[in-house]
Design a protein around this nucleic acid. Structure first.
Length: 338
DNA sequence: CATGCGTGGGC
DNA sequence: TGCCCAAGCAT
């Protein structure tokens, strides 16, 4: 690992560190659509979309601008129905985020007279807004002092300070957040925090970083960045099978099932069945996908019967429904084979 | 504190 | 290819 020599502790030379970072950012910053606005509503939409979701996903498929066209302000989002809301979120995953975003729009109207609060505690009270998102709103929407720690920032700080402990237990998180607070530039929150994240995204990458291009290499203590950050061991992956039906009636309608639970309400799938219920039916599709700690084999069969809660959907409405991606892929394939 | 919640980029 | 993991949050 070729890397600049450590010269100064960033905590002891905070202003120099901040200047180096902000100077680099001002020259090299990427032009993202959410950086062209300070509207707290638009900033919140971007931050929620970007939770655990890569920029390329949000940007490349146009989610951000499309969502703002559909729901340009808190009033329109507060009034959104499930169908339109989930359709705008389809493909992004973590669908609960969309519902909480709408709930936040409603609370901004009912509890804050339609104007986003600027105090940290008030922001943290909003549904779906945790300490990262609250800090991001403080810095990027309001230009106020903040502490902003995402996965990028945690990695950068662990390397800068050569923090070898795991960063995802309570003591590791405390170290990262405390250090982030000590390093933060209170006069230039926008450039500093966006710069620290963009540094982590582009230079101080996971795995082998591009240390020779790093603007703050002189403030970085670690000698082997590729070993950091340390994390707790991952949970083991479990293989599971999922069985579903592909059933069409004489009118060309397809049997579907709308999720009723609190978490995934409004998302549509093919009706799922137990292994016993599909025994003897002929399989028309087999696919695999990963979800959290599960590797799922999804098999779809023709035959079977409708059950309580299943819904017949007209063929021309089928692809309008919001579905989880694995089911959307299967449905699009099977529709194409008709 | 552990777990559930999606998806796709990149190596 | 299989695996890591990404601008987290709620429970």
């Amino acid at each position: 690992m070729l890397k600049p020599v450590f010269q100064s502790d960033p905590l002891e030379h905070r202003a120099d560190f901040q200047n180096a970072l902000v100077g680099w950012f001002e020259k090299n910053r990427r032009d993202y659509p959410w950086r062209r606005t300070h509207d707290p509503y638009a900033v919140l939409v971007s931050e929620v979309m970007l939770q655990q979701t890569q920029i390329a996903t949000v940007l490349g498929r146009g989610f951000f601008l499309r969502f703002l066209e559909a729901f340009p302000d808190v009033t329109s989002l507060a009034a959104a129905d499930d169908e339109k809301l989930l359709k705008a979120w389809e493909g992004l995953g973590y669908y609960r985020r969309a519902r909480m975003l709408r709930e936040t729009a409603r609370e901004v109207i009912s509890r804050h007279a339609g104007k986003f609060p600027e105090e940290l505690d008030a922001l943290l009270d909003l549904p779906g807004v945790g300490r990262y998102t609250a800090g991001a709103l403080r810095a990027f929407a309001f230009g106020l002092p903040a502490v902003v720690v995402d996965g990028n920032v945690a990695r950068v700080i662990s390397r800068l300070l050569d923090f070898r402990g795991v960063i995802d237990d309570s003591s590791g998180l405390k170290f990262i957040w405390d250090t982030a607070g000590l390093l933060a530039d209170e006069d230039r929150p926008r450039s500093y925090h966006a710069g620290l994240m963009e540094l982590g995204q582009r230079i101080c990458r996971p795995g082998v970083p591009d240390c020779l291009a790093c603007p703050v290499g002189a403030y970085c203590k670690t000698r082997d960045p590729q070993l950091l950050p340390a994390k707790k061991p991952r949970v083991t992956v479990t293989e599971v099978d999922e069985h579903a039906l592909w059933l069409m009636d004489s009118a060309g309608r397809v049997l579907m099932h709308c999720e009723r639970g609190k978490r995934r309400q409004g998302l549509w799938k093919l009706p799922t069945r137990t292994a016993e219920e599909v025994s003897g039916l002929s399989m028309v599709s087999e696919s695999r996908y990963s979800i959290t700690r599960y590797k799922v084999t999804l098999r779809v069969y023709t035959g079977g019967t409708a059950a309580e809660g299943d819904t017949w959907v007209a063929g021309d409405e089928l692809l309008q429904l919001a579905m989880p991606s694995p089911f959307r892929r299967v449905v699009e394939t099977l529709v194409g084979e008709i």
